[in-house]
């Protein structure tokens, strides 16, 4: 089951946020939540790089709690994709890389009306992303 998706740029600006099956709100504004999330990811990255016994290449991949899993993919330009799913989901990394190449590059980067560093407001992107996520086998109720 896919809960929600955050996209950050390399400066930590929230480029896009979307949610599907989210059952609990954090009780703070979306703006503050994004900052909290980015701060946590930033710390996680440095934590992982320091505690790693050998030289990391990709670094942090995901964490799991008893209720959900947070998956993290960063592309070389510093764009970060964060996807929350249930704990049993697999193959999220490929899914996010597909999302990057098929949806982000096509409908955001190739959109001349989008200025780099600003949140994405394009409706086309929104619909395509929604379609893409809903079409994935990862979407939908948890398989137990």
């Amino acid at each position: 089951m896919i809960y929600n998706l955050y996209i950050f740029d390399k400066y930590g600006t929230l480029m896009y946020y979307s949610e599907w099956n989210r059952l609990k709100q954090s009780g703070i504004t979306k703006d503050e939540e994004a900052k909290l999330m980015y701060g946590m990811l930033f710390s996680l990255k440095s934590f992982v790089n320091k505690i790693s016994p050998i030289d990391p290449k990709e670094g942090f991949l995901f964490y799991k709690t008893n209720k959900y899993a947070l998956h993290y993919v960063e592309v070389s330009s510093g764009l970060k994709f964060v996807l929350n799913t249930d704990t049993t989901a697999t193959g999220i990394k490929d899914f996010l890389l597909q999302l990057y190449s098929k949806i982000w590059v096509e409908y955001v980067v190739r959109n001349p009306l989008w200025t780099i560093g600003t949140p994405v407001t394009s409706d086309l992107f929104k619909t395509k992303l929604d379609e893409f996520v809903r079409a994935s086998p990862l979407f939908g109720p948890k398989i137990i």
Binding site: Y3, N4, E19, N21, R22, L23, K24, L44, V48, S52, P56, K57, E58, G59, F60, L61, F62, Y63, K64, T65, N66, K67, Y68, N84
Partner: peptide, 14 residues
């Protein structure tokens, strides 16, 4: 995104 979640139980890097 789900209520009553615990903290991090597993953290994985490469």
């Amino acid at each position: 995104p789900e209520p009553k979640s615990s903290g991090i139980e597993v953290l994985e890097a490469d």
